[in-house]
Design a protein around this nucleic acid. Structure first.
Lengths: 209, 209
DNA sequence: AGACTGAATCGTTTGTTGATTATTCAGAAA
DNA sequence: TTTCTGAATAATCAACAAACGATTCAGTCT
């Protein structure tokens, strides 16, 4: 069997154990046993237990990212709608995952705690997609984000941080979170700047060109 | 001595102990001793140890709120500048407090954990100030926040959540946080909506009224 | 030689016991 | 009667020991 195939087998076995009994209650010996190998041999494929969990999380997140990418460039929606879909999908996914599945919550917490860089990696991958969304918007002439797109993506992430790991921050229910996210989206997209409304009022008084 | 005076004395003694030895390492017997009374007697003034901590935090936060209120209606700054001052003050205060003072961090964590409602109370008090800021802006004709002000304040808080307890979320340094907050503020105030820029462009082509 | 095993190591978790301390309350003092 | 005390209670914490399990590596197998 190829090295990669063995790796996948280990990931599968671990995924099964982790989701059934939890990360903490799964031993390396058990995973090795499920794969028909000795515990020591696992270390030829992964540096440690945590790295197996990380591999599982990475695989899962990559799947999620391809989904988000589709939303980012979907036809039949304007840029605002696509951004909304993106952010809502993100919110719903983590909400449901952490809500109903204590195993997933445990893994998320362990990884967040032991591998702080992992969260940064996820954010940066998602930022790429936000940039894609803005590039697509520019291509379609929908959007004129002032300034650097990468920086804009960073700011969107900062402003929507509350909705990224919702249950770590608040005890709000999903509907409430969704209403708030809609509000923040509106804030981000429309702004509340003074000239804005003045301009809009001005524009309404112009004769239709 | 009046009941209130005794209460204050207890708060003073506890504040002294908490800031010197920490909440966990301070016993009710010690606080009572400092006040020249028996431990049991404390319970005629406070329901429990945690309530003393809460009273201290409340007092401290009220002081902070009056400071914020001044910033919210300060003359010589436009609404945007006042909002910026407000949010920056909030960020700097908590950053420094939690950064250099492990005792304050401990108290914040204990209260946040045992009295989840307290954080909500703080948010709602701050929201009042945001509403004041917007009312003042309206009075001065600086601002035209569309829609309900209370709701707008809620959204501003949601979008700036990351900067409220910065060290719980990230390991970013204060300068980086400040740069990000500026970016988010820009996002909030200006928005990145398509029409916005179009309108601005349009407005530039208008003859000066 | 390279792939693998499994016993030994060593850090972590778990469980236990004793001490400490928040909280209560029967009664003493005012 | 009201205010306060301090011993009694019950919950929590700290320290220590035992068990467990991640990781290593000397040695076996192919």
């Amino acid at each position: 069997m190829s090295k990669d195939a063995v790796r996948d087998k280990i990931i599968e076995a671990a995924k099964c154990r982790f989701s059934h009994f939890g990360y903490g209650k799964t031993t390396m010996a058990e995973v090795a046993g499920d794969c028909g190998m000795s515990p020591g041999n696992l270390y030829r494929f992964f540096p440690g237990k945590l790295d197996i969990a990380e591999a599982i999380a990475t695989e899962d997140y990559e799947r999620h990212l391809t989904h988000l990418r589709k939303l980012a460039i979907a036809t039949g929606k304007d840029a605002r709608g696509r951004l909304r879909d993106l952010l809502f999908e993100e919110l719903r996914r983590t909400y449901h995952k952490l809500e109903k599945d204590p195993r997933a919550l445990e893994m998320a917490q362990v990884i967040a705690h032991e591998r702080p860089q992992f969260a940064n990696w996820m954010l940066s991958r998602e930022r790429e997609i936000l940039v894609e969304l803005m590039n697509e918007a520019e291509r379609r002439g929908e959007f004129l984000p002032p300034g650097d797109k990468e920086e804009m993506a960073e700011m969107i992430q900062a402003a929507t941080m509350k909705f990224r790991y919702p249950q770590l921050w608040t005890k709000l229910t999903l509907p409430k979170l969704e209403r708030e996210l809609d509000g923040v989206l509106k804030l981000i997209v429309d702004g509340l700047c003074p000239e804005r409304a003045q301009q809009r009022a001005q524009a309404e008084h112009l004769p239709a060109a």
